[in-house]
Amino acid sequence: MTAEENTSEWQGGDEAFVPVATESSSGAALDLLRIVRINEEIKRVVSVAFKINIMALNAIFLAKRAGNAALGFGVLSNELRVFSKDLREGMMALTRQIHDLVAEVSVILQESRYDRVFAEAALAAPDHAQLHTVLERREARHGERADRIASLRRGLRLAIDDAARLVELGGVLAKSAKIEAAYGAGFASSLGQVSGEFDGIVEEIRSSLDSLRRSGFFGGSA
C-alpha cells in the first residue's frame, strides 16, 4: 500500500456521509514496522562503517611500516577512512529522515483510531451536518499528511541510493587495495589479509543497502 492510499474514503451519496475505515491503520502499522527494520539496518551499516574506520587506521600504520612497497596501499587506506566517515554521515542523515517519518506515521496511527471512533459516531448520528464538516476537515488533513509521507518516502529512497553509490566507490577502493597489497613485498600477506577484510565488509554494507532498497516500504518485496 502506498502513502497515497493511506486515507479513509467516503462511501455513499451526499446524504449518507459514512466514512469507511480503509486499511489506513494497518497500512501505517506495517509502514512503522518497515521503518523500524530500515532503522535497524541503518544502525548495522553505521557500526560496520565504524569498523572500517578502525581497520583503515590500522592499515595506515601497517602501510607505514611496510614503507615504500605499500605507499599505494596507504593512500587507499586513507581513502577508505574518508569513505567510512562519509558513509556514517550519510547514514546519520537517513536517521533524521527516519525520525520525521516515524513522527508522521505515528500521527496516522493515532488518528486512525479517532477515524474509527468518528466513523462510529457518523453511523450513530448519520445526518449530523457538523459531524460531516469535521469529517471533511479531517479528510483534508489526512491528504496533506499522506503527501508529506510520500515526499519523505521519496527522500529516504534517494538518500539510500546516494549511499549505495558511495558504497560502489568503497568497493572499488577495497578491490584496489587488494591489488596494491600484492606489491607489499614482505608485508604482502598481512596487507592482503587486511584488504580482504575491507572487501568483505564493503560487501556486507552493499548487501545491507540492497535489502533496504528492496524494502516493502519502497514497494519492494522485503
Binding site: A121, A124, L131
Partner: peptide
Amino acid sequence: GSEIFPAVFSALSSEFDPS
C-alpha cells in the same frame, strides 16, 4: 473516554448543538 465518544456524541447531539 474516546471509546464511548460515539455513544455520548449521538445522545448529546440529539438535544444540544455540540459546537
